[in-house]
């Protein structure tokens, strides 16, 4: 009996020591781990219509989800090889740091402390959605300006930059307020709808998404004033250059394809054009006919083709989830390509 116990303990300790060393000793890039596993583990919110939301047929849909799919298409060659992990705001960085997920595509604001070595120590991919924080109130309250929210209860999600921005803005205006904090966006919405708070605050995209699911969206007003910059970007763990480079250029490929007018419908047409016409050198490089842009990133040379045929370019992703015909219509505004006066631009694929 005792002997068995001792053997048991010894094997357990060997096992634990084994686990420990595997984790610390591996200096390989996460990119190789993803490729070998054949599945991308992507952290999403799962609760924001238009960005990541469980559809009626049990599939995750949205802009953030399509980013995951584009990554999987580029890294593994199959956009369906993604395991989605719904995460709350406080959980997300821990999940990334412990390696539970490979990358985070979850309405995460890119800022200094999250990026910095001494802060959260993440690396951010390019901004995929330029957002800003705002307030939503009930129309019947006749509130039209933030000044009218003095001494009010305001519903806010805890553990987000939202909470900090709210405080900065009210401090700047010299107004007192009471934050009613919930851990989950759905609770924030419930608290607001039930009348616990005069206003709820979040990124405007999330307010619009939330409003789209209300029974009477017209009774609610999103105030004009935007109190913060919220550049939302996918993130990976810091210090893994191969993975972060690959992620960066997957996003740029989505932007670049829009700039060049390459989409899901004409991708093979464009590819043929590139293959037959020697003079289109920039297009040939971009689609991997010439040169070795993919190889430099540790990806297949035609990774752009793989992405575009799976998800389409950025404009197509946006139209699908946030366009006028979607449930959550948010005008493109700043999220247009620079060619149309927006902020999205891709560096050259050279």
């Amino acid at each position: 009996m005792t002997k068995r116990l001792i053997y048991g303990l010894i094997s357990l300790s060997v096992l634990l020591a084994g686990c420990a060393t595997i984790d610390t000793a591996s200096k390989n890039s996460r990119l190789d781990v993803i490729k070998n596993r054949g599945v991308l583990r992507c952290g999403v919110s799962g609760k924001i219509p238009g960005f990541s939301f469980l559809d009626g047929d049990g599939q995750y849909k949205g802009l953030d989800v399509d980013i995951c799919k584009a990554m999987a298409a580029a890294f593994i060659g199959d956009p369906t090889k993604v395991q989605y992990r719904p995460l709350t705001a406080p959980e997300r960085f821990t999940a990334l740091k412990t390696g539970e997920i490979d990358l985070l595509s979850r309405n995460t604001t890119f800022n200094l402390s999250r990026d910095a070595y001494q802060g959260n120590g993440l690396t951010f991919a390019p901004i995929v959605f330029h957002d800003g924080q705002g307030f939503m109130v009930k129309k019947q309250s006749r509130i039209e300006k933030i000044n009218q929210l003095k001494n009010s209860d305001i519903c806010v999600g805890s553990g987000t930059t939202t909470e900090q921005n709210l405080n900065d803005e009210f401090q700047r205006l010299g107004m007192a307020y009471r934050p009613i904090k919930y851990q989950d966006l759905n609770q924030v919405i419930a608290g607001y709808l039930q009348g616990r708070c005069k206003a709820m605050t979040s990124d405007k995209s999330q307010l619009a998404a939330a409003r789209s699911s209300f029974s009477n969206p017209n009774e609610h007003l999103i105030l004009n004033k935007t109190i913060s910059k919220e550049p939302l970007a996918p993130a990976s763990i810091g210090g893994d250059q191969r993975l972060s480079d690959a992620m960066r250029w997957v996003i740029f490929a989505l932007f670049r394809a829009e700039e060049l007018g390459i989409n899901q419908n004409n991708i093979y047409e464009k590819l043929n054009e590139a293959k037959t016409n020697q003079n289109l050198s920039s297009l040939r490089r971009f689609l991997g006919v010439d040169g070795e842009i993919g190889q430099k990133l540790g990806l297949p040379n035609d990774f752009v083709v793989r992405i575009i045929r799976s998800t389409g370019n950025y404009a197509e992703i946006y139209e699908r989830h946030l366009g006028p015909n979607s449930n959550v219509h948010i005008p493109r505004g700043q999220n247009n390509s620079y060619l149309n006066g927006g902020l999205l631009i891709s560096p050259p694929f050279k």
Partner: peptide, 12 residues
Amino acid sequence: YAVSDTTITQTG
């Protein structure tokens, strides 16, 4: 718990 939740996300 709620306060440290906010603290942790703000400070990392």
